[in-house]
């Protein structure tokens, strides 16, 4: 009993280390073989369509609703202190610093990341990847690398759209519907949102998240057992691991970026 427990711990450790190593090697491979992606922009554009454009609707709609809720809740609290105009600052800072990059990355992981894993997993289980190799086409260069760069490029843009829509949502609910002064809304926001400290840091965050989510999604797809169940498990792992990675990375990045000032 005791021995079995130790064996289980040992197996978990070995598997974990194997996964870290294989994942790193995989990403190194992807980046090393990315020449073809840029030599054939058609592949790259198709993947931007797949990862970015098709995620646009969910990003726009959720951004708008997150902004509406933030505006409403912020207004309800701030009006008690007679500073309802500061709601613009609240909405903008929370979106640009945290919610924009994080929620957009979570949505991206569930919408595009899971689809990437499923696509590669099914290609693997139906031997399409092996077939490509037989035809002397490198599946890394032809399939995986364009997906990686397409998703990596789309992520910061999606996060920016999410933040912008959220701020517009906050504006709609507080200024247009409730009647907070519009000039004060924008001017207080502009006075307290710093381009370098807040907006650029938010973009850096979304770049890091984009890298992590795409790497996880592609690796899980590539690493899955080539069966129906294996693919379904890989898709689940993509969403769970991405969500955990995003939240953990967000904490680390926030600790570095927004303290000590």
């Amino acid at each position: 009993m005791f021995q079995r427990g130790v064996v289980a711990i040992g197996r978990l450790t070995v598997n974990g280390i194997w996964k870290i190593g294989a994942g790193t090697a995989f990403i190194g491979n992807v980046i090393a073989r990315s020449k073809m992606t840029f030599a054939r922009p058609r592949l790259f554009i198709n993947e931007i369509y797949f990862a970015g454009t098709l995620s646009l609707i969910i990003i726009v709609v959720s951004g708008l609703f997150v902004g509406l809720v933030l505006g409403l809740q912020g207004y309800e609290t701030l009006k008690r202190y007679g500073s309802a105009e500061a709601v613009g600052t609240l909405v903008a800072l929370s979106l640009v610093r945290e919610l924009g990059p994080v929620v957009a990355a979570l949505l991206f992981a569930s919408r595009a990341g899971s689809a990437m894993t499923a696509k590669i997993g099914i290609m693997k289980s139906s031997d399409q990847l092996s077939a490509m190799e037989m035809m002397a086409v490198d599946p890394f260069q032809r399939v995986i690398t364009p997906m990686f760069w397409g998703g990596f490029f789309s992520m910061p843009l999606l996060a920016a759209i999410f933040s912008a829509m959220g701020i517009l949502g906050g504006y709609l609910i507080t200024v247009v519907v409730i009647g907070v002064d519009g000039g004060a809304f924008w001017s207080q926001m502009q006075a307290s949102v710093d381009f370098q400290g807040d907006i650029l840091n938010g973009i850096y965050k979304s770049i890091v998240f984009g890298f992590a989510v795409n790497a996880i999604a592609l690796f899980e797809g590539f690493d899955c057992l080539p069966t129906a169940e294996g693919v379904s498990r890989a898709v689940t792992r993509t969403v769970v691991t991405s969500a955990l990675a995003i939240l953990a990375l967000d904490f680390v990045l926030t600790a570095f970026m927004f303290t000590g000032a």
Partner: peptide, 30 residues
């Protein structure tokens, strides 16, 4: 069709950069 994909990718990329510009100039104070 290839043209449709290009159109939509164009819309997406334009929207993304408009979002960035909006954040930089209207929200922040560049």
């Amino acid at each position: 069709a290839r043209g449709t994909i290009d159109l939509w990718v164009g819309i997406f990329v334009t929207a993304g950069f408009l979002g960035l510009l909006f954040l930089a100039f209207k929200v922040g104070s560049a």
